[in-house]
Nucleic acid binder design. Sequence first.
DNA 1: AAGCACTCCAACCGCGACTAA
DNA 2: CTTAGTCGCGGTTGGAGTGCT
Length: 270
Amino acid sequence: MGAQVRNYGCATYQNEEDADIRKGPWTVEEDAILAEYVAIHGEGGWNAAARCAGLKRTGKSCRLRWLNYLRPDVRRGNITLQEQLLILELHSRWGNRWSKIAQYLPGRTDNEIKNYWRTRVQKQAKQLKCDVNSKQFRDAMRYIWMPRLVERIQAASGSSTGHSNYSSINHNGVPISNETGEINNPMIELVMPEPSGSSLESLDTQVSPVSDVTEYQNPTSVQNVSGLYPEGESDRWIEMEMQSNIVNGGESLESLWNEENIWFLQQQLM
DNA sequence: AAGCACTCCAACCGCGACTAA
DNA sequence: CTTAGTCGCGGTTGGAGTGCT
């Protein structure tokens, strides 16, 4: 980052030459000016927008402010279960392609998804003492978190299919795609909107900030999940599931990742 | 009540891709 | 072909907010 000045408390300047360029938090007035400009001229041409609107901001800053905050269709608030599942699924497919992932979550910005990943998902990897990109962690996501999320989504939407269906995930855990590269996974279809503009409202199961991948409802039983796990490893994974239930005494789980479970998972993942 | 630790998010930066002159 | 300007993406970070001691 170098020696540039950061001061989010009040807008500041990088150096003498940039004394006309404001940095830091946007004011209400600046927001209004930018929103009005875009309403008249449309999106794009951000450098011109900054100049013509009289904003002492860089074009980049204007673009970011518009896309991440001022845009009328920006969704704010908790990431839903469906969105969590989509993020996990799409990240396993595309990696850190945040903008691409964001296309499938209407109203969510790449920045927001990136923040979610870093603050929630990477935190869990850290707790498990494994790299977020490691096979172990990906497996934990794929064979435990994601099926659980699916179950919760189904429970919340009143579906009675009875068990998670991840059968269209291949042996690498990647959802099987058709020739066009589209994901062909019934559970993902359940939650995945078109990349442009459609709404998630009908499936909008809001969750609290703590009710993300770190916390699960206790499944009533370890049910029909063997098909979810890697070939030849289902026993081991089912055992992990059962162990996590035993450890939690059948009560609803405060968190799957209490110390005991983390230790247990680490042993299993060795 | 105060201080500390931690979480979350807005906003920054560097860099690569694209495009027009 | 080269160059300059612009845009978009992914990584990083400061600070406000919140919870805990």
